[in-house]
Write a protein that binds this DNA or RNA. Structure first.
Lengths: 155, 155
DNA sequence: GGCCGTTAGTTGCAATTGCAACTACATAGG
DNA sequence: CCTATGTAGTTGCAATTGCAACTAACGGCC
């Protein structure tokens, strides 16, 4: 955002600011409801939707890290805390002696279900309310392009 | 992002993921160029563009915090580090004995100028390249709406 | 089979962050 | 004028985070 910024740069600036504001508010909403932070929700959701994988609901730590967009060491600690809270379980990977797989426990599944309405409400009022259906699709498609192109560069 | 997610929720999910990936890459680009993190750039840029204000290039700490979307305590530490690095200076606010104002030093201005090309390159290739001019304007306008509506709720 | 370069995950350590408590000052009301 | 209430900024402390170093184990190759 220099003095003369074109529309793309303005879009970037708003993009960053909007997300910072909304995430702040979402975290606050979780905290008010005495629920864990968004990062936990992400992990729970990723694990819950990992059933398509080869390992039926189990996910390698590195895959979890990639999907949640956090560092591997961060996933380790995150999983530590969530395991201590009884939300996920870790097992040795059957195919790879070095590997570890994480799964959701029933308690973890229940917590995700409890967190979702709180999350959804924030998404709807802060984000969705400002988007037409067509616009939402366009934005989803555009960002998906960015994500794909990014991953193509860093596989 | 539940099982049946409408387009707005998908848009939100992509929005969050895209930003996490891009910010990660941008920080890496700054680090590779031996430059400070993005948070420093933000502060430098905000201060450089604060000349419009009543205080001519000086900004109250709380205003800086609001514009950078960080907590007040965080602004204090951030400013501490940047002051130690000679990039900003702090003075007592003339209008308010409790207040402090921050300004850019020449060195700070120079650093921002040096960081911008690195930042711009990342924005252009990771973000701008996937946006048509019209689309960029739409996105900028939409996110601006979100930000404004948000601030109206929390003034 | 045994060695070598890679990869998976964890851990130590230092840096960043947020929340809550605190000090200093400002402003309103009596 | 003086007290009461609120605000600005900083700081202590605990939690989260990333980077780099480490260990264990895979896979190719001789």
């Amino acid at each position: 955002m220099p003095a003369k910024s074109d529309s793309r740069q303005r879009a970037w600036a708003r993009f960053v600011t909007a997300q910072a504001l909304l995430l702040e508010r979402i975290e606050a909403a979780f905290a008010e409801a005495k629920l864990p932070p968004l990062a936990w929700y992400d992990v729970l959701w990723i694990l819950e939707n990992a059933r398509e994988g080869e390992l039926r609901g189990r996910l390698r730590m590195a895959d979890l890290a990639r999907k949640a967009v956090v560092s591997r060491s961060n996933v380790t600690r995150l999983t530590d805390r969530m395991e201590k809270a009884g939300l996920v379980a870790r097992f040795d990977c059957p195919m790879d002696g070095r590997g570890t797989v994480a799964t959701l426990t029933p308690k973890g599944r229940a917590l995700r279900a409890k967190m979702w309405p709180v999350y959804k409400k924030q998404i709807d009022t802060l984000f969705g309310a400002h988007l037409g259906a067509r616009e939402a699709e366009a934005i989803a498609a555009t960002f998906e392009k960015m994500i794909d192109s990014f991953k193509r560069k860093t596989p």
